[in-house]
Each structure stands twice: as C-alpha cells, then as structure tokens.
Amino acid sequence: MPVGTETTTAFERVQLARHPDRPYTLDFIERLFDEFVELHGDRRFADDPAIICGSARFHGLPIVVVGHQKGRDTKQRSYRNFGMPKPEGYRKALRVMKLAEKFGRPIFSLIDTPGAYPGIDAEERGQAEAIAFNLREMAKLKVPVIVTVIGEGGSGGALAIGVGDQVMMLENSIYSVISPEGCAAILWKDAKLAEQAATGLRLTAQDLFAENIIDKIIKEPPGGAHNDYDQAARYLDAALSERLAQAVSYSQEERLTRRYKKLRAFGRWGTA
C-alpha cells in the first residue's frame, strides 16, 4: 500500500489517522514542550481525562496547550473514554483557554477525537451547550489560537476546541462532519460502505486544504506519524513556530478581524 503519498486513498488516510500506534497529544506534548503543568477539572462537575490541558513552554515561550487524549491500551482507552470528551472536558478546555487569555499566552490546540461522547450523562449535562459555548468563546479569544488536527477530527467534538487563527492538519489526519461508518450507515444503511463514504465526504487534509477549510498540511514521516514520533514532532514544531510567529505579528484587533473573516467566509452556495 503506497502510504503517505499523493495516491493514498481517503480510506487509507482514515485508517492511518486511527492507527493504534499513532502519536497522541501527550506524545507530542512530551516532545514539543517544557515545564508542562497539567490542569484538571471544569470547577463544575468533573475532570474529563479525554481532554488534556495545561501550561507549558514552547521554545522558552509560555503557552497553553489543550488537546484530546486517546488511550494506548485497553485500560487507558476506557479511562480516556476513547478520546471522546464529555461536557466537562470542553468546559475545562475553555476554562484553561481563558487563563491563557488572561495572561496573554498563545494557545495550541491538538485535535484527535472520534467525536464528542454520545451518552446519556453527557446529554444531561448539556453536551451541545458545552460545544456551542466553546465555539462562540473561542471566536473571541484575544490571544493567538493555533489548531492542529493530529489524528481524527470527529465533527463537533473536534470543532469545540478547534476554532482558531490557524487550522492545520497532519498529512494523514482527517476532519469530518461524521465518521465514514456513520455516514454510510445513515445514507446507505450499510456501514460496510465506509470506504465509499470516506471518499465522498472529502475528509482528508489534502481535500480540506483545497477547499480552503484548513491553512496548512503538515508533513509526516514516511509511512505515517506512527513510524517516527520524533520526526513527526519536529515537523509539527516547525509548523507551530511558523504559524505562531505569523499570528503574533498581527495586532490583537487585526487578528480577531482576520479570524472572524475566515469563519465568515466558510461555505459555497449559489444564487437563483
């Protein structure tokens, strides 16, 4: 299978994005940042291990990092709830992003989730409200927000920490309104048609870059990020450095205007 090349199919990218050995948020945090201090809890209901937040230094600069976290083994997977956050996870992320805003620190967001957790308890505590509130509040954060999809960008669950000045994707990551399986099950009543759905949804980094939905594609090591965490982190480091420098070069007002314009421009429609 020719992997990580122009000819890689959409579904192959889906599989790479979900590869069990793919580097997760903590793997990148370990390699990119110093002095990481993890901050827990939404001060409302619980701490959600599916989202990691904290302060750290990026080449000496104080920053905040938030990201989804998946588990590596069975125990960890269930502890991290497969990287599917509950409302308290999104509320924690926003709380820590507001701290970043207070102290004038840029925010790095790393996205890697199958989606927001679809469960009774999550509904009871307002999953939709938590996501919606984050979308609104992130749009007005006064500090630079650099978002990178490092694995799966699962719909609203991804977007809830994904509004920013720059949105980038690793070469073999995906970002979609629904999982290919979910889409196939709903539209064709057959989850086995996921491969077809993956192509149709245009969920690869390459598709989304062409559509102007993301700003940059970040290279991965040959065969995919799982083959060399260190190299994958170096590529990500370079991209974060570049885009942060760019975002900081604008005045706060200018940055917010640009962020709004970018969001405002999403969509393609016709006129009668």
């Binding site: 993890e38 809890g41 001060r43 409302r44 701490d47 924690k92």
Partner: peptide, 8 residues
C-alpha cells in the same frame, strides 16, 4: 479532583 474542583 475527580469532581473537577481543583487543578491538581
């Protein structure tokens, strides 16, 4: 900590 009240 479990109930989200403290950072650490």
């Amino acid at each position: 900590l479990d109930h989200g009240m403290v950072d650490a």
